[in-house]
């Protein structure tokens, strides 16, 4: 039975790049369904196309074949129903304060009519991410973890249907990372937003997700979908935890070093090409 609580459907999605003569299948035949309110984790080795998939969902990139549908409407480009939180600490606008970043988001999306209301809503979301009292600081005055909190608050403030998170805690130290994981779960329960979270950290995937989608690289494909029914809050000490951990670890496999390095170079080239191709989007 096809249930009508399917938030996002990905159908036969391929993404192919050309680097000179070389054809790279970043993603091949991706099929996925995400239910409303689910917390999905995508995990895979470098170069498996997990970020590319997220960027296709965000609408920053177009699939070569297949499509992404949000509540049965095909995605054509970026939109505030799918808000992205990046790994990069530079995603905040440095010329606005913490509060200003969120107020700006509410203003340009014309979500809220009056300045006073915008401020109140911005404060509400800052409080949600534990940053009440930091409204008037500028991004450069914040730590990495605080910047990511602001980015989450800014993304949530426009009330997206889906929060897309591209290794948002990847550049944080272990302590901050685990605090933010706990808070993200609290926020997810509070807002009931659907979350698609990309990571390469097995533990993070198990702690966060209802479903863990394990990718393989070259070509980027779904290797296995793991239902994660561990009761929350989840602790790495639990017995079932290590079972899932072992399973994912095995699925991800080990590769020789040269292969990994080669893939890393390819990713770098993708990213450079992406940055170069950004400007014509104007």
């Amino acid at each position: 039975m096809v249930s009508n609580n399917e938030e996002l459907v990905i159908e036969n999605l391929d993404k192919t790049y050309y680097l000179g003569e070389r054809r790279i299948n970043a993603l091949e035949r991706i099929n996925l369904q995400v239910k409303t309110g689910e917390f999905i984790n995508i995990i895979g080795p470098s170069g498996c196309g997990k970020s590319t998939l997220l960027r296709c969902i965000a609408g920053f990139e177009k699939p070569t074949n297949g499509r992404v549908k949000l509540r049965s409407n095909e995605i054509k480009g970026p939109g505030i129903d799918r808000m992205m939180v990046f790994q990069d600490f530079e995603q905040l606008f440095p010329w606005y304060t913490v509060l200003g970043n969120i107020v700006f988001a509410l203003k340009v999306t014309k979500m809220i009519a009056t300045a006073k209301e915008r401020k109140e809503i911005a404060k509400h979301y800052l409080k949600m991410v534990g940053l009440a009292g930091f409204e008037d600081l500028y991004p450069h005055q914040l730590s990495g973890g605080m910047k990511q909190r602001v980015a989450i608050a800014r993304a949530l403030s426009v009330q997206p249907r889906i929060l897309l998170m591209d290794e948002p805690f990847g550049s944080l130290d272990a302590m901050t990372r685990s605090t933010l994981q706990e808070e993200l779960i609290r926020i997810w329960k509070e807002t009931k937003v659907t979350i698609i979270f990309v990571t390469h950290n097995i533990e993070e995937a198990i702690i966060l997700g209802d479903q863990i989608i394990v990718f393989e690289a070259n070509p980027g494909r779904v290797k296995e979908v793991i239902k994660n029914t561990l009761s929350r809050p989840r602790s790495p000490e639990a017995n079932d935890f290590s079972q899932i951990w072992e399973r994912i670890h095995k699925l991800l496999g080990f590769k020789n070093r040269e292969r990994v390095l080669e893939e890393r170079n390819l990713i770098r080239l993708f990213q450079e090409e992406r940055e170069l191709s950004l400007l014509p989007h104007l």
């Binding site: 920053f60 530079e90 999306t109």
Partner: peptide, 12 residues
């Protein structure tokens, strides 16, 4: 930074 551009595009 490309991420700032994309954050802007994400906001429409």
């Amino acid at each position: 930074p490309a991420t700032q551009m994309e954050a802007g595009r994400n906001l429409g």
